[in-house]
Protein backbone atom coordinates (compact mmCIF):
# COMPACT_ATOMS: atom_id res chain seq x y z
CA UNK A 1 0.00 0.00 0.00
CA UNK A 2 1.29 3.45 -0.88
CA UNK A 3 -0.56 6.76 -1.01
CA UNK A 4 1.16 9.94 -2.10
CA UNK A 5 -0.95 13.00 -1.39
CA UNK A 6 -0.49 16.68 -2.18
CA UNK A 7 -2.35 18.90 0.26
CA UNK A 8 -2.92 22.37 -1.10
CA UNK A 9 -4.31 25.67 0.07
CA UNK A 10 -3.47 29.21 1.07
CA UNK A 11 -1.28 30.05 4.06
CA UNK A 12 -3.53 30.33 7.10
CA UNK A 13 -6.21 27.91 5.84
CA UNK A 14 -4.92 25.15 8.05
CA UNK A 15 -4.15 22.36 5.59
CA UNK A 16 -1.98 20.80 8.25
CA UNK A 17 -5.07 19.82 10.25
CA UNK A 18 -5.95 17.47 7.39
CA UNK A 19 -2.39 16.17 7.29
CA UNK A 20 -2.42 15.59 11.05
CA UNK A 21 -5.63 13.56 10.87
CA UNK A 22 -4.45 11.34 8.02
CA UNK A 23 -1.04 11.04 9.68
CA UNK A 24 -2.49 9.99 13.04
CA UNK A 25 -4.71 7.40 11.34
CA UNK A 26 -1.80 6.07 9.28
CA UNK A 27 0.53 5.73 12.25
CA UNK A 28 -2.12 3.99 14.35
CA UNK A 29 -2.33 1.31 11.66
CA UNK A 30 1.44 0.87 11.63
CA UNK A 31 2.16 2.56 8.30
CA UNK A 32 5.28 4.56 7.48
CA UNK A 33 4.84 8.28 6.94
CA UNK A 34 6.72 11.28 5.63
CA UNK A 35 5.25 14.72 5.51
CA UNK A 36 7.00 17.77 4.04
CA UNK A 37 5.48 21.06 5.12
CA UNK A 38 5.88 24.70 4.18
CA UNK A 39 6.91 27.05 6.98
CA UNK A 40 8.11 30.61 6.72
CA UNK A 41 7.26 33.41 4.39
CA UNK A 42 4.53 31.70 2.30
CA UNK A 43 2.45 31.17 5.40
CA UNK A 44 1.47 34.84 5.11
CA UNK A 45 -1.38 34.29 2.63
CA UNK A 46 0.78 32.73 -0.10
CA UNK A 47 0.25 29.37 -1.78
CA UNK A 48 1.19 26.49 0.50
CA UNK A 49 1.35 22.74 0.03
CA UNK A 50 2.36 19.69 1.93
CA UNK A 51 3.67 16.42 0.51
CA UNK A 52 2.14 13.61 2.56
CA UNK A 53 3.38 10.10 1.90
CA UNK A 54 2.09 6.96 3.58
CA UNK A 55 3.19 3.45 2.79
CA UNK A 56 3.49 -0.01 4.27
CA UNK A 57 7.16 0.09 3.27
CA UNK A 58 9.92 2.47 4.25
CA UNK A 59 9.68 5.76 2.32
CA UNK A 60 12.81 7.23 0.74
CA UNK A 61 12.08 10.75 -0.48
CA UNK A 62 10.33 13.49 1.50
CA UNK A 63 9.11 14.85 -1.83
CA UNK A 64 6.65 13.03 -4.07
CA UNK A 65 8.02 12.62 -7.61
CA UNK A 66 6.18 14.73 -10.15
CA UNK A 67 3.40 12.82 -11.89
CA UNK A 68 3.27 10.21 -9.14
CA UNK A 69 0.82 11.69 -6.62
CA UNK A 70 -2.26 9.54 -6.08
CA UNK A 71 -4.30 12.48 -4.99
CA UNK A 72 -4.49 16.23 -4.65
CA UNK A 73 -6.57 17.38 -1.71
CA UNK A 74 -7.13 21.12 -1.87
CA UNK A 75 -9.06 23.46 0.39
CA UNK A 76 -9.12 26.11 -2.36
CA UNK A 77 -10.11 25.65 -6.03
CA UNK A 78 -7.38 27.59 -7.84
CA UNK A 79 -4.72 26.04 -5.60
CA UNK A 80 -5.90 22.54 -6.57
CA UNK A 81 -4.77 23.17 -10.14
CA UNK A 82 -1.33 24.53 -9.24
CA UNK A 83 -0.13 21.01 -8.43
CA UNK A 84 -1.39 19.18 -11.54
CA UNK A 85 2.20 18.43 -12.65
CA UNK A 86 2.46 16.35 -9.47
CA UNK A 87 -0.67 14.27 -10.12
CA UNK A 88 -0.41 10.83 -11.71
CA UNK A 89 -2.44 10.26 -14.89
CA UNK A 90 -5.01 8.22 -12.94
CA UNK A 91 -4.90 10.28 -9.73
CA UNK A 92 -7.86 12.01 -8.07
CA UNK A 93 -8.35 15.72 -7.53
CA UNK A 94 -10.50 16.50 -4.49
CA UNK A 95 -11.14 20.18 -3.96
CA UNK A 96 -13.16 22.77 -2.18
CA UNK A 97 -14.93 25.12 -4.61
CA UNK A 98 -15.00 28.08 -2.23
CA UNK A 99 -12.41 30.55 -3.52
CA UNK A 100 -10.00 32.42 -1.26
CA UNK A 101 -9.45 35.70 -3.06
CA UNK A 102 -6.52 37.74 -1.77
CA UNK A 103 -5.01 38.66 -5.12
CA UNK A 104 -6.17 41.07 -7.80
CA UNK A 105 -5.96 38.74 -10.77
CA UNK A 106 -7.94 35.83 -9.37
CA UNK A 107 -9.40 33.95 -12.36
CA UNK A 108 -13.10 34.13 -13.21
CA UNK A 109 -15.02 31.50 -11.31
CA UNK A 110 -16.71 29.85 -14.29
CA UNK A 111 -13.41 29.45 -16.13
CA UNK A 112 -11.80 28.05 -13.01
CA UNK A 113 -14.62 25.57 -12.49
CA UNK A 114 -14.44 24.56 -16.16
CA UNK A 115 -10.75 23.64 -15.67
CA UNK A 116 -11.59 21.58 -12.61
CA UNK A 117 -14.52 19.87 -14.36
CA UNK A 118 -12.17 19.05 -17.23
CA UNK A 119 -10.01 16.89 -14.96
CA UNK A 120 -10.74 13.21 -15.64
CA UNK A 121 -11.11 12.22 -11.97
CA UNK A 122 -12.27 14.97 -9.68
CA UNK A 123 -14.54 15.67 -6.74
CA UNK A 124 -15.47 19.33 -6.25
CA UNK A 125 -17.65 20.49 -3.39
CA UNK A 126 -18.35 23.69 -1.49
CA UNK A 127 -17.09 22.47 1.86
CA UNK A 128 -17.53 25.86 3.49
CA UNK A 129 -21.20 25.87 2.59
CA UNK A 130 -21.71 22.28 3.78
CA UNK A 131 -19.97 23.08 7.06
CA UNK A 132 -21.97 26.28 7.46
CA UNK A 133 -25.26 24.45 6.94
CA UNK A 134 -24.22 22.02 9.64
CA UNK A 135 -23.67 24.98 11.94
CA UNK A 136 -19.91 24.47 12.21
CA UNK A 137 -18.23 26.72 9.65
CA UNK A 138 -14.80 25.94 11.14
CA UNK A 139 -14.91 22.29 10.13
CA UNK A 140 -14.78 22.79 6.35
CA UNK A 141 -11.37 21.10 6.26
CA UNK A 142 -12.86 17.94 7.77
CA UNK A 143 -15.58 17.99 5.08
CA UNK A 144 -12.82 18.00 2.47
CA UNK A 145 -11.01 15.17 4.22
CA UNK A 146 -14.27 13.20 4.32
CA UNK A 147 -14.71 13.77 0.59
CA UNK A 148 -11.20 12.42 -0.01
CA UNK A 149 -11.57 9.50 2.41
CA UNK A 150 -12.95 6.91 -0.06
CA UNK A 151 -9.67 7.14 -2.01
CA UNK A 152 -7.32 6.95 0.95
CA UNK A 153 -7.07 3.19 1.52
CA UNK A 154 -7.26 3.85 5.22
CA UNK A 155 -10.10 2.36 7.24
CA UNK A 156 -12.77 4.99 7.77
CA UNK A 157 -12.92 4.07 11.44
CA UNK A 158 -9.21 4.87 11.78
CA UNK A 159 -9.88 8.38 10.51
CA UNK A 160 -12.71 8.72 13.03
CA UNK A 161 -10.42 7.53 15.81
CA UNK A 162 -7.80 10.01 14.68
CA UNK A 163 -10.31 12.86 15.01
CA UNK A 164 -11.25 11.61 18.47
CA UNK A 165 -7.65 11.60 19.59
CA UNK A 166 -6.70 14.94 18.01
CA UNK A 167 -9.66 16.84 19.45
CA UNK A 168 -9.69 14.91 22.75
CA UNK A 169 -8.82 17.95 24.82
CA UNK A 170 -11.52 20.08 23.19
CA UNK A 171 -14.41 17.97 24.44
CA UNK A 172 -17.12 15.71 23.02
CA UNK A 173 -19.04 18.43 21.20
CA UNK A 174 -16.06 19.45 19.10
CA UNK A 175 -15.29 15.81 18.35
CA UNK A 176 -18.86 15.17 17.20
CA UNK A 177 -18.96 18.27 14.98
CA UNK A 178 -15.80 17.14 13.24
CA UNK A 179 -17.01 13.54 12.89
CA UNK A 180 -20.23 14.86 11.32
CA UNK A 181 -18.28 17.07 8.94
CA UNK A 182 -16.13 14.09 7.93
CA UNK A 183 -19.27 12.03 7.31
CA UNK A 184 -20.91 14.79 5.24
CA UNK A 185 -17.87 15.02 2.97
CA UNK A 186 -17.70 11.27 2.61
CA UNK A 187 -21.40 11.07 1.72
CA UNK A 188 -20.90 13.69 -0.97
CA UNK A 189 -18.24 11.59 -2.68
CA UNK A 190 -19.97 8.24 -2.35
CA UNK A 191 -23.11 9.89 -3.78
CA UNK A 192 -21.10 11.15 -6.77
CA UNK A 193 -19.45 7.80 -7.34
CA UNK A 194 -22.77 5.92 -7.16
CA UNK A 195 -24.52 8.28 -9.55
CA UNK A 196 -21.76 7.67 -12.05
CA UNK A 197 -22.09 3.92 -12.21
Amino acid sequence: MKKDIILAGVGGQGILSIAATIGTAALSTGLFLKQAEVHGMSQRGGDVQSNLRISDREIASDLIPQGKADMIISVEPMESLRYLPMLSPDGWLVTNTKPYINIRNYPEMDKLMAEIEAQPRHIALDADEIARQMGSPKSANMVILGAASPFLDIEYSSLQDAIRSIFRKKGDDVIQVNLDALEAGRNFTTGKLNSRT
Binding site: G11, R44, G45, G46, K68, L87, S88, I103, E115
Partner: peptide
Protein backbone atom coordinates in the same frame (compact mmCIF):
# COMPACT_ATOMS: atom_id res chain seq x y z
CA UNK B 1 11.96 8.84 -17.99
CA UNK B 2 10.51 12.05 -16.57
CA UNK B 3 7.14 11.48 -14.97
CA UNK B 4 5.91 15.09 -14.79
CA UNK B 5 2.12 15.23 -15.01
CA UNK B 6 -0.22 17.68 -16.72
CA UNK B 7 0.82 21.32 -17.03
CA UNK B 8 -0.52 24.01 -14.74
CA UNK B 9 -3.52 25.60 -16.52
CA UNK B 10 -2.80 29.13 -17.72
CA UNK B 11 -5.56 30.65 -15.60
CA UNK B 12 -3.76 29.81 -12.35
CA UNK B 13 -2.25 33.06 -11.04
CA UNK B 14 0.67 33.30 -8.69
CA UNK B 15 -0.22 34.00 -5.09
CA UNK B 16 2.66 35.75 -3.36
CA UNK B 17 2.63 36.13 0.42
CA UNK B 18 1.23 39.37 1.75
CA UNK B 19 0.95 41.33 4.98
CA UNK B 20 -1.85 40.08 7.26
Amino acid sequence: ADTRGRDIPAIVSSRPPSLC
